[in-house]
């Protein structure tokens, strides 16, 4: 099935392998010197941490692995990071902006 017609709500947990579907465009906006995430009739402006998380969402790594990498990079406790990652991704999933394997 195509990205756009999978039924039901995606619940993000540690085993979820998230990815941005092709209709979501994560771009660096040179003129504004910031990242933008373009969606149908929406523009999201992610902060640095959100951008790093989104760049790790390749449909291969799961949430646990993504959180591990973030924890390492920021020398922070992985359980704290994972809670933040799940919350961020669930929020995107609830807007239809994130898919997963």
């Amino acid at each position: 099935m195509a990205e756009t017609n999978r039924p039901g709500r995606l619940i993000v947990d540690q085993g979820t392998k998230p990815y941005l579907p092709p209709f979501m465009k994560l771009r660096y906006d040179k003129g504004r010197d910031r990242w933008v995430l373009l969606a149908p009739e929406r523009i999201l402006s992610p902060d640095k941490i959100a951008v790093e998380i989104l760049q790790l969402c390749d449909g291969v790594k799961n949430v646990e692995e993504i959180s591990g990498q973030m924890a390492e990079q920021y020398s922070a406790p992985v359980d704290v990071i994972q809670k933040d990652v799940v919350e961020l991704l669930q929020d995107l999933a609830d807007k239809g902006f994130l898919k997963a394997f």
């Binding site: 902060d47 959100a50 998380i53 961020l88």
Partner: peptide, 11 residues
């Protein structure tokens, strides 16, 4: 938003 995103609707 959950603190990591600003969001704007362009309708």
């Amino acid at each position: 938003q959950n603190g990591h995103f600003e969001s704007v609707t362009v309708d």
